[in-house]
């Protein structure tokens, strides 16, 4: 099984509880993926990052990709994709800037810069937001046409994401449309069947006090199991 989690947001206690659950022998977890948002404004963010960076002695070394909070840290420190933390301020107000600056060391910011945007393993994309942006939140309310587009951009069959913090399986089972093309020289019409694709929201580890959620996935049976851990 793969354990896929997101949204730790510096909540070290929640992360420890989830690790304990992951390491339970019945789960037979062979790989650990963390889809971003390891940091937040909690003071423990730096301690969590140190734990993740120096995890050689751990049972499983996590595969980690960038999340929205990491992107905001990079912007704050002048090494992000944009110059101003506009999104951060719009969502949380300017009062968030100092706590976030203080939550992560400059050394850790340099480490965050080297993180992957996401992972493609077998026919699975694991990413924080979506295939177009770390900020885009895919949710159960997202229209299926958009879900299909985000999956098909990466030529995969499944997309695991964590931006919304929600836990869900969105399975596009079937569909069709009639496609007619007229050019200067000819006209063609055919019916196209939709492919079967799936988007999984993996939950969040650290947002809700006392309750962490994450996802187990078996690449052999293609089965998904949602896990809730009280701590």
């Amino acid at each position: 099984m793969w354990a896929i989690l997101s949204g730790i947001e510096g909540n070290l206690a929640a992360y420890e509880a989830v690790l304990q659950d992951i390491y339970h022998p019945s789960h037979a977890v062979e790989a650990l993926y963390i889809l971003g948002d390891m940091v937040g404004v909690r003071k423990e963010s730096e301690a969590l990052l140190q734990r993740l960076r120096f995890s050689e002695s751990e049972q499983l070394q996590p595969n980690i990709c960038l999340g929205w909070w990491e992107e905001q840290c990079l912007i704050l420190h002048g090494v992000g994709k944009t110059g101003e933390p506009t999104e951060l301020v719009d969502l949380y107000g300017r009062d968030i800037l100092k706590p976030l600056w203080n939550a992560v060391s400059r050394e850790s910011v340099e480490w965050l810069r080297g993180l992957d945007f996401g992972f493609v393993e077998l026919d699975v994309l694991m990413i924080h937001g979506s295939s177009i942006s770390v900020s885009e939140a895919l949710t159960p309310e997202t229209p299926p046409w958009l879900m299909l587009d985000r999956i098909q951009r990466m030529q995969v069959n499944q997309l695991f994401c964590g931006r919304s913090g929600r836990m869900f399986e969105y399975f596009v089972q079937e569909g069709s449309l009639v496609d007619s093309l007229l050019t200067l020289d000819e006209r063609q019409t055919h019916t196209v069947m939709s492919p079967q694709k799936r988007v999984i929201g993996v939950g969040n580890v650290g947002r809700e006090p006392g309750q962490a959620s994450y996802t187990l996935y078996s690449p052999y049976s293609n089965k998904v199991e949602f896990k809730i851990v009280m701590y």
């Binding site: 159960p140 079937e174 449309l177 009639v178 496609d179 093309l181 050019t183 939709s194």
Partner: peptide, 20 residues
């Protein structure tokens, strides 16, 4: 730079949504 008209009709999708 290649002209065309593409009509997309009768589009439908069936989704199974599972939450905890």
């Amino acid at each position: 730079h290649v002209p065309y008209v593409r009509s997309l009709a009768s589009g439908n999708l069936q989704v199974r949504l599972t939450e905890p």
